[in-house]
Structure formats: C-alpha cells, structure tokens
Simulated scan of single mutants.
Amino acid sequence: MSYNPEIHHRHSIRLKEYDYTQSGAYFITICTYNREFLFGNIIDGTMRLNEFGLLVESEWLKTAEIRGNVSLDEYVVMPNHIHGIIIINRRGTGHRAPTEHRTPTKESFGKPVPGSIPTIIRSFESTVTKQINKIRRTPGSPIWQRNYYEHVIRDEEELGAIRRYINENPLNWDLDRGTEGGARSSVPLLTSHSPEQTQQVGYAIGALARAGDLILLVGELGAGKTCLTQGIAWGLGFDGYVASPSFMLVREHQGRVNLYHIDFYRLDDIEEIAELGIDDYLYGEGVCVVEWAEKALDLLPSEHLLIKFEHLAKNERRLYFEPKGKRYIELLAQLKEKWNSL
C-alpha cells in the first residue's frame, strides 16, 4: 500500500519546522514499551547488560559506523531506556550548535530523509526490535515506545551537563525511579510540621530563585507539593492563589519572574509527557516547578533541584533535596542559610 497521510498519519513530537539533518549535537532518549526492564540490571551503581542490552549497545555503536556524517558522544543503556548524544557533521561545518534558520527538511511517517535524526532512530529501533523478537520468538511484539525524546543541545555548557547526566545515570537509578533508596541518597534538609511551614520553605526557595531555574517535586498524593509551590509563587512576587494544574497540566503565574507550574499527575505514560511539547517552559525565562516529576525524570533537563516529600504524620513532612548542577548546589546552600529564619 502506498503512503496515504489520511490513513498513516500519527502524532509526532518532532519540531515541525526544524531541520534534523543539520550539524549539531542531539540528546536522545528512547524508552522500552511499557517501560519494561529488558536490557539488564543496576548493581552497586553499575549497569550490567544482559543479552538484549549488549545487542542494543552494539546496534547503537553501529549508528556511527555505517554513517559518515554521524558520530556518537556519551551514551548509556539502562534497564528500560537508552540515553545518547548523536552528533551530525555536515561536510565542512564541524561541531556547532544547530540553528533554526536553514530551510527545514520535511519528514513525515513513511518518508524517511537520509541522515536525519528521525531516520537514524527509526533504523536503530527497527533493527533492535527484529533481533530481540527473533531471539525470544515473539514476532511483531513492540520493544520501544512509539515516540522517542530528543533535545537540541545549544552550547558547550549544556553539552557538558548532559554528558554528566548520562554518566551518572546508573548511580542515580534509585533516585530517578522515585524510590525510597533515592530519598536516602538525597539530603534531608528539614522537617515541616505544618502546611504553613511548608509554604515558608517554598517562599524561601522562590525568593532565591531566578529565571531558568527548574524545581522537580516528588511525593505521594497529599504530600504537600502544591503547598510548597504556593510558597514558591509568593516568594516570586505572585500574590494570588496557586491551585494544582492537574486538569490543565500547566499554569502560568506572573511575579518578578514568571512561574510555570506543571503537573504530571494525570499522565500515566511517559510517551504522553513527551508529546506535550513543554520545552518552552523547561528551558524558558521563568521558574519552572514540576509536580509528579518522577513520571518523567528521563525526559527532563539533567540539571535541576529535586525535592522529595516523605509523609511522617498528619501535618508532618520530611523534605529531601537533591541538587543537580552547580547552580542548584549553590541554591541549596543559600536555602540552608535561610532555614534558621524560617
């Protein structure tokens, strides 16, 4: 059957006007279908690849071997996903941050563009899927989620941060999964004894926050995430009421710096989150707070301040802080200094 856009159309999370064949570095994340653990296990902070994991690694490395315009940077195969940096080198351009001023290369389902990121990923996914299904005798079974996540790396500083994130991914496995093991690896900065005190902590964070900051909140329903966000909003100069954006997904509040309040509570599939197109908020000029961030840590920027809530009693919460990156280490240090006045 020939390609028919009315029949074969499916939603894409690629940027519609972006040329994915142009030179530059791209951070790629591909997750397994239903987040199934297929590729091995993390033991003592080290990824131990099984037969399928070794196959994935081998095919990933072939990505550059069979393409003269492609090279690979850091990568890691995890139990249920792979992170990697792909660098596309157009002849004579070297490594540089991509721009968005060239004529876009149109690419749609069924119409591959040689050398583009979507075509490279489709080829990789297809080969891995066929080989794994052949080994386990499950022809036609899905291995990967329908969509993958890509981020255009803009500069050397961002490239360095993403490299660190990839290298540290196995060490941070428990934290990324939102487990109690993750909480123990964080810093237990304080215990809040009331919603009002949680708001005071948020106010201190908001007062210290600046444009571009990303705060990730992890905790069960009713743990105090929105309560903390209310305080952050007040600290940023917003004088209104902050409600959970569960139904709207994103709410924007105006203060001295805008607050982008994102909530993943009603999204159960990481693919749904990838399709939201929230990069403008995550990499924008405001302060971004994400509730239920544990549902999409693999898709979120590698540098952030993660706050995990532990429910101790009716109104008592212990807050664990995990800073990722120099900016957030500094922010946490400043917050500790303020704690005595809270």
Rank of each mutant, 00 (worst) to 15 (best):
L300M: 12
A333K: 14
E57Q: 02
N69G: 04
A313G: 09
W60I: 03
L221G: 08
I135R: 00
P301N: 10
T103M: 07
I7Y: 15
T63A: 04
E310I: 03
L159V: 08
G277E: 08
L332T: 13
P98R: 03
L54M: 09
Y18W: 08
Q230V: 08
K324Y: 13
F238S: 02
R91Y: 01
I205L: 15
A333D: 15
K16P: 13
F109V: 15
Q22Y: 11
S302P: 15
G224I: 02
R136E: 00
E100N: 11
H83N: 03
G178A: 07
G53C: 10
E330L: 11
H11E: 12
W234E: 11
H151G: 13
N169V: 13
E17K: 07
K338E: 15
R136K: 05
I307A: 09
N89M: 08
E271I: 00
I13H: 12
Q230E: 11
E17A: 13
G92N: 02
G277N: 03
K336Q: 15
G53I: 04
A223D: 07
I307M: 15
V242A: 08
G178E: 09
V201A: 14
W60E: 04
A313D: 08
D73S: 13
E51N: 01
I166S: 01
T63V: 11
I307L: 14
S2H: 06
